[in-house]
Design a binder for these strands. Structure first.
Lengths: 153, 153
DNA sequence: TATTGTTATACTCTATAACTATA
DNA sequence: TATAGTTATAGAGTATAACAATA
């Protein structure tokens, strides 16, 4: 009878991630973190975090938007938006004006400086898209965006 | 001459998110958060957070894997893995054994109970995939996974 | 000298409760 | 009574520095 040692405390040579890679959530999270990592580095030039960029971009394209609307659009909670908006205001990138129909709310508006900064930041972001999806064809990138929207919309 | 009031502090009716929706990072993050939100609720039954599931799944499929290998595979930092592994060990879901080739490391192995739990959890996760991607055809889901991998690999 | 695992700790992000001013 | 915005605070997640044991 030959030597038998069926389970000799094995070591792992190469990690098998095949199961996790079958999950949409795992892949979407990895992809998001990869893209956003590059995005963060690039936006440091404008002193904008990812969430600052998102908020300021929505204000640029939706002048008069309220904090509540920003929270709904971006899935964040009102208390976590307060200091962010305050900082943008102190940097003179946005201003608050009284809301025309609702005395409780403020309308958020880009300043000329804020609009200029965001146009530059959005240009940089759009350039980055080509880097981030450099291994995708234009058609594949379009398909990816379409399928991702079908997941979360 | 009619009344003119070209910029009367507008209010926003419906938020225009079209620019952000052109960005892969924005869409991937939204999709990941949507899927993972459902995932978290479902995994509460097994008392597993997303990261617990990922670690335990890798241990199941890679018996003998080290902490260092887990960190590399999941993009997390060693200090943040310590208490997670300790908790899995205290729950008797995994055990540590001496690494065969490296006295500094421990090999992590699933216990029979841990393997049984993870097989159940993985079944639930795979079922959830059909819910999460219910608006996608099978072919679309396959395409989505392929394109996401091309982004982060 | 470099690496594995660990402790301690700091920083960021996210979540909850409670308050005010207005609808 | 309900909602917008705010404050304070708690909790989760992520980050760095430094150490002991081993390679």
């Amino acid at each position: 009878m030959p030597t038998e040692n069926p389970k000799p405390t094995p070591s792992v040579d190469e990690v098998d991630t095949r199961y996790l890679e079958t999950l949409v959530g795992y892949n979407a999270r990895r992809a998001a973190l990869a893209v956003i990592g590059v995005f963060m580095e690039r936006m440091a030039e404008y002193d904008l975090r990812v969430v600052d960029f998102s908020v300021a971009s929505l204000i640029l394209h939706n002048p008069g938007i309220t904090s509540r609307q920003l929270c709904s659009a971006l899935g964040m909670l009102p208390p976590n938006l307060v200091s962010l908006v305050n900082t943008l205001e102190k940097r003179r990138l946005i201003t608050r004006r009284p809301h025309p129909n609702d005395g409780r709310a403020s309308g958020l508006h880009p300043t000329p400086e804020g609009a200029a900064l965001m146009r530059a930041a959005e240009s940089a972001a759009s350039e980055l898209e080509f880097v981030a999806s450099s291994r995708l064809t234009v058609a594949e990138r379009k398909t990816l965006l379409r399928l991702l929207k079908k997941i979360y919309l």
